[in-house]
């Protein structure tokens, strides 16, 4: 039996988001959306996390951090890019310090669109992430 679908713990990292998606990620945990219903815990620690929720895009300084956080997550793990910036660089794609979406650095499993991404889409993204997590586990098993 696999418990991954019932206990997805997330790590949220703000790459270079405008806070819009970040606070929506947090909002998912609060009473109106209550992600904990699905067993989701916002761990704040890569070593405990199964799903990396990442908002904002890659820039010169955070690129190492993103890599490092991902590397420190134990397998199996899934990356969910939340919001337009994380998906592609969004409106800031042409800013001088933006290198692009998260997929420039990490293998992104789920793209959540929106500027800012709505909680409903984020929850949907997490649920899709759970599916990806299951698949990865099966592959590795």
């Amino acid at each position: 039996m696999s418990f991954f679908s019932k206990s997805p713990w997330i790590l949220h990292y703000d790459a270079s988001s405008c806070n819009g998606c970040d606070i929506e990620v947090l909002a998912c945990l609060t009473p109106l959306y209550d992600l904990e219903r699905f067993g989701v815990v916002n761990t704040g620690n890569p070593k405990h996390a199964d799903i990396l929720l990442i908002t904002g895009s890659v820039n010169e300084r955070n690129i190492d951090i993103i890599r490092n956080l991902y590397r420190q997550m134990p397998d199996p793990k899934v990356v969910v890019a939340v919001g337009a910036c994380a998906c592609s660089g969004g409106i800031f794609a042409r800013a001088y310090n933006i290198q692009g979406g998260i997929d420039k650095v990490l293998p992104v499993d789920v793209y959540v669109p929106g500027c800012a991404a709505r909680p409903e889409s984020i929850i949907d993204g997490v649920v899709q992430g759970i599916g990806a997590l299951e698949q990865k586990r099966r592959k590795s098993a």
Binding site: Y13, P46, K47, D64, I65, N68, L69, Q72
Partner: peptide
């Protein structure tokens, strides 16, 4: 080298960014 340092890079011998 794999200890948690708030996301900062860490290298062997306990060196962190």
């Amino acid at each position: 080298a794999d200890f948690y340092a708030a996301g900062r890079p860490v290298t062997s011998g306990g060196v962190m960014g």
